[in-house]
Amino acid sequence: MKKVLLCDDSMLVRRQLRDYISQQRKDVTVIEAVNGIEAVEKYAIERPDLVLMDIVMPEMDGIGCLKSIRKLDPQAKIIVLSSVGNRETLLEALEAGALDFIQKPWTEKVINRILDLY
């Protein structure tokens, strides 16, 4: 069973992704965090197989969170899922250690590919 940590301050995004994954991917469980600080705390406890990380969040943004998790666990697999898909943010995310980048709005095809690939 693959454990995925979903970090997004949007209740809607978390709900939609959680609902989709729980209905369509019986091989995946989802845990949630509403901001970067909570994500780092939950990562330390849960040690998920994969992290889906938003960028624009209160308290600690996605890039900061990404770096913190990677410091905690250099092998952490983190995929950025964000609407801010401009060149600079994409590069910043990849440089900070993100394995991939998904431009919102997500599609079922892309989510399945990411869950299978990583």
């Binding site: 949007s10 209740m11 809607l12 995004v13 609407s83 898909g85 401009n86 919102k104």
Partner: peptide, 18 residues
């Protein structure tokens, strides 16, 4: 949930504008 939906739409649009 209503708030989250409208907020996320604005966020999506601004992200695409970026």
């Amino acid at each position: 949930l209503m708030d989250a939906s409208v907020l996320e739409f604005l966020n999506l649009h601004n992200g695409l504008y970026s």
